[in-house]
Design a protein around this nucleic acid. Structure first.
Lengths: 109, 109
DNA sequence: GGGTCATGTCAGCGATCGTATACAATCCAA
DNA sequence: TTGGATTGTATACGATCGCTGACATGACCC
């Protein structure tokens, strides 16, 4: 029994896609199960960072995935590295979801 | 070492508030750490369902909380109860975040 | 070739997010 | 009690969400 880490929206998306396939569901099936559009499932599986927490948790639940965290003793001693993480990775992922630029065809100086 | 389950936005909010206090941070501190407003932290801690996945994951990471899921063998046999869960609980929680009604002061018949 | 299914993508639209700012509650120490 | 720090709320505004509906692609089978 492996423990899969969920650190980014992409991780969550990958997990959802995985579980969905294991259960032999297509995007439309899952969408109906959790009460969202097929487009939503499609985008979330691709790591959409702005997806709403509630819907994502519903998706995981519907797929039988129980997200959890280890809560140690409770002392402040439990905060290891945490350096505000990979800013680069975060920015790169976010860039993929930037709004379409339809005007400003001019790159400016 | 206990395993805490994250099934709803309220669960996530409670976890965030807990970890934040253990680390002796106020809402403003945490907000700065993850690059959001203090209001955002305040609302998320209270279980805002529409909070964006990316920001929530950043908050958890900043607090040293690593969300994870157990990935069993991979067989479809791993989807136990899951009956679209507590519709009532979900609706009740969602109701708390309904938009303010500023017009329609008339309740209609 | 023709048909079906699952997936990826686009456009437009109303609803909601997250923000800045301001002010009211609480709490706790002195 | 007084004062400061922390938290809870309210408003308005631009940005983004999630939706519908449509169309294109690719895989697969007939």
């Amino acid at each position: 029994m492996t423990q899969l880490l969920l650190r980014t929206p992409a991780d969550v998306g990958a997990l959802i896609r995985d579980r969905r396939r294991v259960l032999k569901l297509d995007q439309a099936d899952l969408a109906r199960m959790i009460g969202v559009s097929r487009l939503w499932v499609n985008q979330v599986e691709k790591g959409k960072p702005g997806a709403s927490l509630g819907l994502v948790l519903r998706a995981l639940d519907a797929l039988g995935a129980r997200p959890m965290v280890d809560v140690g003793a409770g002392d402040a001693s439990s905060v290891p590295p945490v350096v505000t993480a990979d800013i680069d990775a975060i920015m790169a992922a976010a860039r993929k979801w930037e709004p379409k630029r339809r005007d400003l065809p001019d790159g400016g100086t």
